Simulated assay, not measured.
Amino acid sequence: MVYKVSVEATDTCVVAQLLDTGIGFVDDRSKSTVWESFDHPTDTMLPGMKLGLDRRTGMNRFLISWRSAADPGTGNFSLQINPKGSPQAFIYWGTKYIWRGCPWPLKSYTDISNVSFVNNQNETYMTYSVSDASVILRVMLDYSGLVRNLIWHEKDGKWNEFWSVPKSPCDPYGRCGTYGICDPHFFSRRFECDCLPGYEPKSPREWNILKDASGGCVRKRLESTLLCGHGDGFVKVANVKVSDTSAAVWASTNMSPRDCEKNCMRNCSCSAYASIDIAGKETGCLTWYGKLMDTVHNGEEGYDIYVRVDAVELGNVFLPSTNFEQNQCV
């Protein structure tokens, strides 16, 4: 159905139309879209919608929760793409991080939905499509701060949830503090938090007895062993959601793993690096400077990150059951 809308104070006639990209207002003369609903999402993201930044127009599309289940007023939570470093999605409570998604570029995997992450000089955004046209799917930011994937079940006449975050013990942002690493499959250790190689708990009592990792980890032998240029190197931590990439730097989107390692080694401020395949390009080199935060074991969907350690740590023999591997730089 098409509705004609008059716009006061101009001679322009605007037509409201149901477009492929949502409800839009189209200039009847120029046929250009002057406004469309997909550019102004509320708490729900539908297939084809973009979540993120259009650098050409300055438009930032993000989800914002309801105030409560019965009140559609502006709530406390938002789901936004942070374009800094290597872009990633965050759930915010006001300005505080609650949960962080995997950064660009995403690894592809088979699911009911196909998620795309576009990052170029004009736009940075996420979008998704549904592989089965018979499936009605929506992504909703709940008033309680949950991002929920919901499928419409015609037989039951209701939306059923098949995925949501934050959910696991490792989902809350920075669960194990700085230089910590969280393992959602921690049952054999009784605590989901560990320290990255070369680091130890800042407060052993809080960590080991109270199971409070908020203080994070600090480098072992902080005063007695020099870190840079004295036999230091890197230890691989395999298959993780890499540390928060907001302050990370792409040294290059076309660099071999060996050159990526050398690039990080040359700079004493480089605390870690990752060599990551970028679809349609080559292998990129992502580098971290300063603290590493929110590293999580992520199975096959994760990447490998190489953490800088001193010569003593590099010489240690790690237990076969760990995911840490030595990689000395020469």
Score class of each variant (00 low, 15 high):
3 Y>N: 13
4 K>R: 13
5 V>E: 05
6 S>Q: 13
6 S>I: 09
7 V>I: 13
10 T>S: 13
13 C>F: 08
13 C>V: 14
14 V>L: 11
16 A>C: 11
17 Q>K: 14
18 L>N: 10
21 T>E: 10
21 T>V: 08
25 F>S: 07
25 F>M: 14
27 D>G: 01
36 E>Q: 14
36 E>C: 07
48 G>S: 08
50 K>D: 05
59 M>E: 12
61 R>A: 09
61 R>P: 00
65 S>A: 12
67 R>K: 15
68 S>A: 13
68 S>C: 06
68 S>E: 07
69 A>S: 13
71 D>E: 04
71 D>Q: 04
71 D>S: 09
71 D>I: 05
71 D>R: 06
73 G>L: 04
74 T>N: 06
75 G>Y: 07
77 F>D: 03
78 S>L: 05
79 L>C: 05
79 L>Q: 01
79 L>V: 04
80 Q>Y: 04
81 I>G: 00
88 Q>E: 10
94 G>P: 07
94 G>N: 06
102 C>F: 11
103 P>L: 05
103 P>N: 06
106 L>S: 03
106 L>F: 07
114 N>G: 08
118 V>S: 05
120 N>P: 06
121 Q>N: 15
121 Q>M: 13
122 N>Y: 15
131 S>P: 00
132 D>C: 04
140 M>L: 11
141 L>P: 02
144 S>A: 13
145 G>Q: 03
151 I>G: 09
159 W>P: 02
160 N>P: 00
162 F>I: 11
163 W>F: 12
165 V>K: 12
165 V>Q: 10
166 P>Q: 07
168 S>G: 09
175 R>W: 01
177 G>D: 07
178 T>Q: 13
178 T>A: 15
179 Y>P: 00
180 G>N: 08
181 I>S: 01
189 R>A: 09
190 R>W: 08
193 C>Q: 00
196 L>P: 00
202 K>P: 00
204 P>N: 04
207 W>E: 02
210 L>G: 00
212 D>N: 15
216 G>R: 06
221 R>P: 01
229 G>W: 08
230 H>A: 11
236 K>R: 15
237 V>C: 02
241 K>Q: 14
243 S>C: 14
246 S>H: 08
246 S>A: 15
248 A>L: 01
250 W>S: 03
250 W>V: 02
251 A>S: 11
254 N>R: 11
254 N>I: 08
257 P>W: 03
263 N>Y: 15
264 C>Y: 03
268 C>N: 06
268 C>K: 06
270 C>L: 04
271 S>L: 01
275 S>A: 06
281 K>W: 06
283 T>I: 10
284 G>I: 06
284 G>L: 02
285 C>P: 05
285 C>E: 06
286 L>W: 02
287 T>E: 14
288 W>D: 05
288 W>C: 05
290 G>P: 03
290 G>Q: 02
291 K>V: 12
292 L>M: 10
295 T>H: 02
298 N>Y: 15
304 D>S: 14
312 V>E: 14
316 N>E: 14
319 L>C: 09
324 F>Y: 13
328 Q>A: 13
